[in-house]
């Protein structure tokens, strides 16, 4: 099986590798894994609390080229989107963009899971941080 040019590009020049401060209140962290292949993916977002826009996204993935490319692409895509817009990203969008073969679809599923997990973590922090501010928008 050969990787598509886009996968190779993301693999050789991964975007947004790194980490954000996990304990920070405006950072959401998603850590997910795929038992089929042993991949593990961490995706973090920093969200502007006034606009709900994701201003920064970082990832670190241990896994195959497709998993790295999927998470690299995911960080590119979520940046500049609101939290709700980012929730609408589907794994098949990633499959199409990267031309992933069927055996690598689970890598894109993992990336979607990572986005959702990161947003879920951020949302949880917002609920506990300002329980009465929900109606203030």
């Amino acid at each position: 099986m050969s990787y598509s040019d886009k996968v190779i590009d993301h693999y050789n020049n991964p975007r947004n590798v790194g980490s954000l401060d996990k304990s920070s209140n405006d950072v959401g962290t998603g850590l997910v894994g795929a038992p089929e292949c042993g991949d593990v993916m961490k995706l973090q977002i920093r969200v502007n609390r006034d606009t709900n826009v994701i201003e920064e996204a970082k990832f670190k993935t241990f896994g195959c080229g497709s998993a790295i490319a999927s998470s690299s692409l995911a960080t590119e895509w979520v940046k500049g989107k609101t939290v709700d817009e980012a929730m609408a990203i589907k794994n098949m969008d990633i499959v199409k963009e990267l031309s992933l073969p069927p055996v690598k679809i689970h890598c894109s599923v993992l990336a979607e899971d990572a986005i959702r997990a990161a947003i879920g973590d951020w949302k949880k922090k917002q609920e506990t941080a300002k329980p009465v501010a929900v109606e203030a928008q």
């Binding site: 850590l31 038992p35 042993g38 593990v40 241990f62 959702r116 997990a117």
Partner: peptide, 17 residues
């Protein structure tokens, strides 16, 4: 719109990472 229940428990994932 619910969180997906991860197959691998979070503490194991942390350890793996």
């Amino acid at each position: 719109g619910q969180m997906k229940k991860q197959i691998v428990p979070p503490d194991l994932l942390e350890e793996v990472f």
